[in-house]
Design a protein around this nucleic acid. Structure first.
Length: 381
DNA sequence: GATCCGTGGAA
DNA sequence: TTTCCAAGGAT
């Protein structure tokens, strides 16, 4: 069955998966009937405002619902409209995103708001193709906004949709491969309810987070149990098929804690890459340093700061504290080294002296909060 | 197409 | 402790 389905879909034929029109109708009725009774009451389901949908979908990328809810409410308090977001200071937007992770989402979101205001007069475009052109909006988010806000029959293929449909049809294609998306896209287009595409997509998400969740699913009580080929063949946990990721790399750093009468030296991270735009202690990558010489090389690394003023910094290395922080694809091992310094001019650097009491004003990544805690400088993480 | 980009919860 | 993962997108 799945082989033929795969051949049909990959071959570009748009034949329904062996289902009669009556069965497709029954499928939609079972799904939407359940959704009407059991759908989750979520803040972004109070209306169909495309700005609200964009904000929620962006925050929900790779992030759990329970984590997003308070961020969503707070963000809308600060930036109630797409115009307000477009005009907001970027630092304020980053601060509102602090702790959510994947910080480029925040920058792209504000860029999208500016595009809507400048290119579309503040009115969101209504088609998935146009939405797809906005910054930070990919195929999933475009489909979600088009279907939920504008009632367009577009699939919204997220991890839930991959999991639900791979189980329903026992699809063996590897969902980790980008190419697999088109297979699901063509399948879902045949099943999506043209009268209620937004509800259809959201119903799949609710199902994927309940009866058809990744861990400890309960397919026997799913409203789609009768349509679930993996359940009917007792192979639920074989799906979805997903290849493994490579192991994460360990990266050692020195974290330079430079204290002057004006406070601690924090630098703004580069606009791209890890923890973009956020504020941290300066880091020195020691992965390429010669272990026997690295303390001397640390001093050399500090020269970029010393060159700005007539100062010499002596770092305290013995008894240094080690802080570990794990990201999706790498682990940092941060050795805290401290130095006292006279205050010197930082105007030419994306850096500033910050007193401990003012750390809360800046957008800091979680790893920086860990460092502060290790130093006894507040923070709860 | 492969890799990069955060965080917190759960087993 | 380790691993997986949760409403992806950019490069």
């Amino acid at each position: 069955m799945q082989d033929r389905l795969h051949e049909q879909l990959v071959g570009g034929e748009l034949m329904a998966p062996n289902w009669s029109k009556a069965k497709v109708t029954a499928f939609r009725r079972a799904l939407l009937g359940w959704y009407d009774q059991e759908k989750r009451d979520l803040p972004w389901r109070r209306d169909h405002d495309p700005y609200h949908i964009l904000l929620s979908e962006t925050m929900l990328q790779q992030t759990q619902v329970a984590t997003v809810i308070p961020y969503y409410e707070h963000f809308l308090q600060l930036f109630p409209t797409v115009q307000a977001l477009a005009q907001a200071p970027e630092d304020q937007v980053m601060k509102a995103w602090e702790g959510l992770g994947y910080y480029s989402r925040a920058r792209h979101l504000q860029q999208a708001a500016k595009q809507v205001v400048q290119d579309y007069g503040g009115q969101f475009p209504r088609t998935a193709a146009e939405l797809r052109q906005l910054s930070g909006i990919g195929p999933y988010t475009a489909g979600a906004i088009a279907s939920i806000a504008f009632n367009q029959p577009e699939p919204a293929i997220d991890g839930n949709a991959f999991r639900v449909f791979s189980r329903l049809f026992k699809i063996d294609a590897d969902i980790a491969k980008p190419q697999t998306r088109q297979l699901f896209d063509q399948l879902i287009r045949q099943l999506i309810d043209p009268k209620r595409p937004g509800d259809f997509n959201q119903a799949i998400m609710d199902l994927g987070s309940s009866y058809m969740r990744a861990k400890d699913p309960d397919p026997a009580h799913s409203p789609l149990a009768a349509f679930d080929q993996s359940y009917l063949s007792d192979t639920v946990m074989d799906y979805p098929v997903k290849s493994k990721k490579k192991p994460k790399k360990v990266v050692p750093y020195f974290a330079l804690v430079i204290h002057s009468p004006q406070g601690y030296l924090l630098v703004r991270r580069p606009r791209t890459g890890m923890l973009a735009d956020l504020w941290m202690f300066p880091l020195v990558d020691r992965s390429e340093l010669d272990a026997a010489l690295e303390v001397d090389q640390l001093v050399e690394a500090a020269d970029r700061f010393e060159a700005l003023a007539d100062v010499h910094l002596t770092f305290e290395v013995t008894g240094a504290k080690l802080v570990r922080h794990t990201f999706t694809h790498q682990q940092w091992q941060l050795t805290l080294v401290q130095a006292d310094s006279p205050a010197f001019d930082l105007a030419v650097l994306p850096a500033k002296w910050v007193k401990a009491a003012d750390f809360g004003r800046l957008a800091l990544p979680t790893v920086q909060k860990k460092l502060l805690k290790a130093l006894g400088l507040g923070g709860t993480k």
